[in-house]
Design a protein around this nucleic acid. Sequence first.
DNA 1: ACCGGAGCCTGTTAGC
DNA 2: TGCTAACAGGCTCCGG
Length: 270
Amino acid sequence: MPELPEVETVVRILRPQLVDRTLSGMRCHWPRHIDRPLLPEFQKRIVGRKIKGVSRRGKFILIALDNGETLIVHLRMSGHLAVVAATLPIDKHSHTIFELDSGQELRFRDTRKFGRVYLVRDVQEVVGRLGPEPLDPAFSAATLAELLSGRKRILKSFLLDQTMIAGIGNIYADEALFHAGLLPTRRTDSLAADEIVALFKGIREVLQLGIAREGASISTYIKPDGEKGDMQNEVKVFRRTGEDCFRCGEMIHRIRLGGRSTHFCPGCQQ
DNA sequence: ACCGGAGCCTGTTAGC
DNA sequence: TGCTAACAGGCTCCGG
């Protein structure tokens, strides 16, 4: 569920709650949540570690520990992280729980169980194949042009490919394409220079707006504090099938692309 | 290189 | 109202 703006929002809320806390233990009732290492070793290696920082790379949440190792969480479709009092009753979908020295717990709730947790010495082992961060100042229209060139891919699928650009998911791909005035079915090698610039701006604008609005609470996403984001009120095409385009009045269409629902306005996008 | 489909899971919604 | 099928913001593997 969460894409770059939602993950960024989670990171910003968790950071002050976690930095300088010490992990006193961990338990897990769904072993497949743990990607690596195996649970017994994971538990052993995490005890007594102090949290030095909380950051993000693509859709991965990176929790830096004082021994140089990094605890990594990917929320996938239904993941949710929150720091709560250890005395709070445990939700039946909170499969993985990290105990803190403050009498609190960092709970990983994940209804669909697609989420993953890692503990690694080298972060690159997990995030090494990701493409550039789209909001990094170094990411430019020229970077995007380079990525698009020489490829003959459907534009929507390109945007969802984390090894091309990190962090974009189904909502922001559709929204970026609307902002850019480009049809999701276009091929990467068919974009003119001005269209590449428009796509670059579209990506930047929708992601920045998503962060400013603290994420889109369209399906199950809520912030760690349980509150909704506001980005769902800014969405122009995503899940607006059959409704009128705010800009031109044409009906929003929905097609299936790369196995994903794809929404666009036939009047505004070419 | 790139596409579509299946699989991983549970819960909600749309349609009959 | 009740049942069933489709669908869900992610990602990986497989065959063509």
